[in-house]
Design a protein around this nucleic acid. Structure first.
Lengths: 153, 153
DNA sequence: GTAAATAGAACCATATCGGTACTATTTTCT
DNA sequence: AGAAAATAGTACCGATATGGTTCTATTTAC
């Protein structure tokens, strides 16, 4: 179906919430409450984001998480990269050479990079700031105009 | 992991092979042989591509498949759309309104479109012709320059 | 009329995803 | 010092989707 996982989905929701007050420290129970999601799930996601350096974590009582960078500086690509691993749409890339059975007969190896790169760049072009809104409906309007193109019958 | 399915992967391989002789009629056993893939799998994929209008099919002996459009006119987005359904990276889009629990509290609904649209457009920008090569290394070079950015440590 | 091919549906083993539970560690507060 | 509150890390299991095969029906060429 070519979709991101729910974890990533939730992660973007949580980060968007935090982006409203970029300086503040949020703890997991609070974010779970705000997002209407179960605490264990939220906790798991925040751990991953902290492990990969998108969030700073403070342990102990009065602990919590806060954004490392400004929302403008965080791209959706980084979030996805953290929560579901490398953005590689095709296989023979990150398996390294020699793994692909077709090896000799597959003239596509290099061209797969085109896809991976295109998607990666597209996602790098969207910041957490944009996702967090309140970006007016005018931009969204622009977006959905082409969203309902030939691909979305 | 944000990757396309193997079926789609194989589909692009098969179509790329056909793109070398856009006028010719290829049958499934022949393509399976050429790609080094099992016939049932190849057959299944070609059926889907034909069902969605990317391939013309001719039944009976001496039957087979041929490209409907020129390789330049077919985008990777169309292929993915055919083999794994709508390109919608996030959920609350194609479920229609009312399905999302967060409904009121989720200020992101519209912004998800940004992601879907960005990815869709990126994939629409790549043609089967480009995938089929022999497009020189110069373009790939250009692509991978930004591919090995912050996301690919 | 027979062989060769596509059309379509059903099926199952396996891998991945979504979510939970448990233990350990760190920090604050009294 | 001790209790409470929070994160860190790991392991686990049910549900879902994927990958691939098989079977039957239909169409067409010779």
């Amino acid at each position: 179906m070519l979709r991101i996982t729910k974890q990533t989905d939730y992660g973007i929701v949580l980060l968007s919430h935090m982006a409203a007050e970029p300086e503040r420290l949020f703890n997991a129970p609070e974010l779970a409450e705000a997002a209407g999601l179960p605490l264990p799930t939220v906790s798991k996601i925040l751990k991953m984001l902290a492990r990969d350096g998108l969030l700073d974590s403070h342990r102990g009582a009065k602990g919590g998480y806060c954004l490392v960078s400004a929302p403008e500086e965080i791209s959706v690509a980084e979030i996805i990269f953290s929560l579901e691993g490398p953005i590689a749409m095709t296989e023979c890339i990150d398996d390294g050479p020699g793994e692909c059975q077709q090896e000799g007969s597959c003239p596509l190896q290099a061209n797969w990079q085109l896809i991976n790169t295109a998607v990666r760049q597209a996602l790098q072009g969207i910041s957490l700031r944009q996702m967090a809104g309140p970006m007016g409906p005018q931009l969204v309007q622009l977006a959905s105009r082409s969203a309902h193109s030939s691909l979305q019958p």
